[in-house]
Design a protein around this nucleic acid. Structure first.
Length: 585
RNA sequence: GCCCUCGUAGCUCAGUGGACAGAGCGGGCGCCUUCUAAGCGCCGAGGCGCAGGUUCGAGUCCUGCCGAGGGCGCCA
């Protein structure tokens, strides 16, 4: 499919201005028409200012020539303003035509610019036998939203949950569990509210203490690591059980968060373990990896360390083991060769930027990444507490993800209960859950990805401002109007002159696809949040100045159409953020 | 030492090289016989860390400096 199912007015105007440029100044054919939304008209074209020098003309003169060449087409009126801006107005009928066309489309008229592009999104990646904590919040939420947006834009998205399910720490844990068969850690032997990962996390700490205190246990643990790596059946069975129980616990969080990740998306470190030797062989044969101080490394061609020498990727450790550098190289090899990916995305925190830069560079030198292939680290900032320091419990420990969700839902519940005391308890629970989870996700997505952000439950469940709750409420309010009208078939009469608020709302709705394309290109979901907030505000302005239900036809029909398209766009946009938009609040 | 990111209103944040830099919170005033007041309007508040540069035009691009955070061999 093309970039647009319904060509936005901005695109139509841009085409017209492009045509005018070619007509008025053939030498400038193909130049950017620089069309933008405008406060002074429907759109403005800044091409005359940008091109005046090349055209060897005064901007105002060039603008006048362009205006003269812009007769008719999708443009109703043009005027030159200021130093050479073209203020452009589109016909009323076009405004309504776009609304009608988008309502007829199941995709709201949005095209599929990423059609068929196989895109691997690597995100979440919790560690087996450990609690999910605040550190997994952003990767899970941002990664999931990107998977949704790219999928909607037509990409063939393959989600990859790169679980931390392999490593020497499991030798210690398995040995401990083997020696303490009475220890409870299976989900069915734990009391409600205690997860397997919570129990395993505790047992691991105990095992760790014993490892440090008892040399004999440490020896047995080390032997257990060898057993695990050599595939000893009993050890492997225990490990698989630990993985399965952990995944059950993750499932509970994923279900509550409403993320797309499913069991088959789990392709953890253990999956790559058998592939690492081959990966390293290729690197050695290609002459990229070389011995250094007993280890095997790839020296970076561009990055130097504190000593001024090239920084190495650790391909094989001195003890013969493999670290994350090797695994990440193996993921590229696998995702390109076996999954046939065209675009690789790694949603991890920004501290790993240098690591990925070096891994990608090595993969390019190795020939695994070729020119048509895009590999991108999608970095994000740290979650901070209100004190501006990394978010921790009062005692200084990491904050469990589940606790954090509980707190947000509890606050949302208090706010909802206060504002709507008549709500039946069951509805209250359901709405509090939707609002609380939505608030957490929205707060995480709404701020620009790269910056650290402050986790503030009070602010995120606020009903005012750029919050998830505000958008959910806006959606519910519109749905309420539509229910009262009996959810009629949209009937748009393009002959009606739109009120300013109707015009502004329709133009905003027309720009939905452009915003999504921007999110797909920049991998910045906060642009979608900003768009939806603006849309909700435009709707509110419309709601304040334009009566819907008691308007006379054909105005009423047109306004209902605006309500329908706004509700669908809001609901759809929220769903791409992974947030549910309830019918009632 | 080198590299990366960030620095916009009292606070939390938006801001494709274009017309007077915008929201929310907090403060002040006002608006519910009308589709959800979980809302809306008005008032006050910054000239975008600092200094240069490129440009017809810079919060946005470039250079330097200051400040904060992060990274730089066997943890991911």
């Amino acid at each position: 499919m093309s970039n647009h199912e319904v060509l936005p007015l901005l695109g139509q105007v841009a085409e017209a201005v492009s045509g005018a440029i070619g007509w008025a100044r053939p030498a400038l054919v193909g130049a950017d028409p620089v069309v933008r939304r405008s406060e002074h008209a429907d759109f403005q074209a800044n091409a005359a200012l940008a091109l005046a020098r090349r055209a060897r003309a005064r901007p105002a003169d060039l603008a006048a020539d362009l205006a003269a060449a812009l007769d008719g087409g999708p443009i109703e009126a043009v005027e030159v303003s200021g130093p050479g801006f073209l203020n452009i107005r589109v016909p009323d009928a076009s405004i309504w035509g776009q609304v009608a066309a988008r309502l007829r489309s199941t995709r709201l008229g949005v095209g599929s610019p990423d059609d068929g592009r196989r895109t691997v999104v690597d995100y979440s990646a919790p560690n087996i036998a450990k609690e999910m904590h605040v550190g997994h919040l952003r990767t899970t939420i941002i990664g999931d939203s990107l998977a949704r947006v790219l999928g909607f834009l037509g990409a063939d998205v393959i989600r990859q949950n790169h679980l931390g399910d392999w490593g020497t720490q499991f030798g210690m844990l398995i040995q401990y569990l083997d020696e303490h068969p009475a220890a409870a850690w299976h989900s069915d032997e734990l009391s409600a509210g205690i997860s397997a990962v919570s129990a395993l996390d505790e047992l691991y700490k105990t095992a760790r203490a014993e490892f440090d205190a008892d040399p004999a246990f440490a020896d047995r643990s080390r032997r257990r690591v060898v057993d695990l790596q050599s595939g000893d059946p009993a050890t492997l069975a225990m490990w698989k059980e630990i993985v399965a129980e952990s995944e059950k616990a993750f499932r509970v969080i994923y279900d509550r968060l409403g993320v797309l990740l499913r069991p088959e998306d789990s392709v953890g470190e253990s999956f790559y373990n058998p592939l690492l030797a081959d990966t390293v062989d290729e690197l050695v044969r290609a002459g990229l990896a070389a011995g250094s101080e007993g280890a095997l490394v790839i020296f970076s061609e561009e990055v130097a360390g504190p000593d001024g020498k090239p920084v190495p990727l650790m391909v094989r450790k001195r003890d013969g083991g493999y670290g994350y550098d090797t695994t990440d190289l193996a993921t590229i090899r696998y995702r390109v060769h076996d999954l046939k990916a065209a675009r690789l995305l790694y949603v991890t925190d920004s501290r790993q930027a240098l690591h990925f830069r070096m891994v990608f560079a090595a993969a390019r030198r190795m020939g695994w990444l070729t020119d048509g292939l895009e590999a991108e680290h999608v970095p994000f900032g740290t979650v901070l507490g209100k004190d501006g320091r990394p978010f921790r419990t009062r005692a200084g420990g990491t904050v469990r993800l589940m606790d954090l969700l509980d707190e947000a839902v509890a606050r949302a519940r208090a706010v909802v209960a206060e504002k709507n005391p008549e709500l039946p308890a069951a509805d209250l629970d359901q709405i509090a859950e939707l609002a609380g989870i939505g608030a957490v996700k929205y707060a995480d997505l709404a701020t620009s990805r790269l910056k650290d952000y402050v986790f503030d439950p009070d602010r995120m469940v606020s009903l005012n401002g750029n919050t998830g709750v505000y958008l959910q409420y806006a959606h519910a309010r519109i749905r309420s109007i539509l229910r009262k009208a009996g959810d009629p078939e949209a009937a748009v009469d393009p002959g009606v002159a739109p009120e300013p608020a109707e015009r502004a709302l329709a133009l905003e709705l027309d720009g939905y696809g452009a915003t999504l394309a921007e999110v797909g290109a920049t991998l910045e979901p906060h642009r979608l949040c900003g768009y939806l907030y603006e849309l909700a505000r435009d709707f509110t302005a419309f709601y304040e100045s334009c009566r819907v239900l008691d308007a006379a036809e054909p105005v009423r029909g047109n306004r209902l159409a605006l309500c329908q398209l706004t509700a669908r766009t809001l609901g759809h946009g929220l769903s791409l953020l992974g947030i549910t938009a309830p019918e009632r609040m």
